[in-house]
């Protein structure tokens, strides 16, 4: 019974961490159709921003939830102004440009922080469930993911900015005709996407040993989750992260962590064969 509880927590945690690492990309790719191959490096920079801030004496929660998203969001803003805005609508060119950016960020991080592993310890102690110890930090990640999804929904559905942003993504000319500048909306959206990537990197930082190349570990999973999710931003994210997280953890517990990864990828291949446009192109159509 305790073991079942432990497994359940791990499954929910796996889903939550997929949501977290994919959220920034879902906005940048899902809404703006910009293939951001530097997504992993935005996360890596979020991690370094957190560690640096903590080393300067900033409270760890402030560092993770405020400093890191702001820093990475601002970096994203600069990147958008200098590079991305010239490339909207040119899918292949943005891939090339953001891949170059990812190499640049890895190089810069190596120059600044060195090519060695760094890290901070988790701020929340573990606790006991029956005969088992559980990492208390898992619950923090689950909480952050839930808040994130709710906040995204509230902004997109409930605010004027969300409405305008969705409109501009669907039909920029019409938005412009109504007096909104698509250029500014894209800029703000890219900022939000980058900030979410930074948040994900920051929240995951205490669980890992961070190196400048850490971003590479996240990028594939993030793209698979976003693409398999399909056109609806939040429903897509939840459905594909839920499916992949569940499959991954079932095979991890039943067989081995390697099989967990394999099962996740096989599930993605099968899913995209059956639903090439993603889950939400068939189910939950028209949802957020």
């Amino acid at each position: 019974m305790d073991y079942v509880a432990v497994i359940s927590v791990e499954v929910v945690y796996a889903v939550a961490s997929l949501v977290l690492i994919s959220a920034g990309l879902a906005i940048v790719f899902g809404m703006m159709k910009v293939i951001n191959l530097a997504h992993g490096e935005f996360m890596m920079m979020g991690g370094y921003a957190t560690i640096t801030a903590v080393n300067y004496g900033v409270n760890i929660f402030v560092a993770m939830l405020i400093v890191a998203p702001l820093v990475v969001g601002l970096i994203g803003l600069v990147v958008e102004r200098l590079v991305i805005r010239h490339l909207y609508g040119r899918l292949v060119d943005t891939m090339l440009a953001t891949w170059g950016l990812s190499l640049l960020f890895i190089g810069l991080a190596t120059m600044i922080f060195g090519n060695t592993t760094t890290g901070i310890s988790t701020p929340i102690p573990g606790f006991t469930v029956g005969g088992y110890q559980i990492n208390g930090y898992n619950f923090f990640i689950i909480l952050v993911s839930i808040v994130l999804l709710v906040a995204m929904y509230a902004v997109l559905k409930g605010t004027r900015f969300g409405l305008v942003a969705r409109g501009a993504m669907q039909n920029p000319e019409m938005a412009a005709a109504l007096g909104y500048s698509p250029d500014k909306i894209y800029m703000a959206t890219f900022f939000a996407g980058s900030a979410l990537s930074g948040l994900a990197g920051a929240v995951l930082a205490p669980l890992v040993g961070l190196v400048p190349t850490s971003g590479g570990a996240y990028i594939a999973k993030a793209f698979i989750t976003v693409i398999a999710g399909g056109p609806s931003l939040i429903a897509g994210l939840m459905s594909s992260a839920g499916l992949f997280g569940l499959v991954n953890q079932i095979f991890t517990f039943a067989v081995s962590p390697v099989m967990g990864e394999v099962a996740l990828l096989i599930a993605a291949v099968i899913l995209l064969r059956l639903l090439p446009q993603g889950v939400t192109a068939r189910f939950l159509k028209g949802k957020m």
Partner: peptide
């Protein structure tokens, strides 16, 4: 590249 050991720890 595996960085998540939660299930292993369980």
């Amino acid at each position: 590249d595996v960085a998540d050991f939660g299930s292993t720890i369980a």
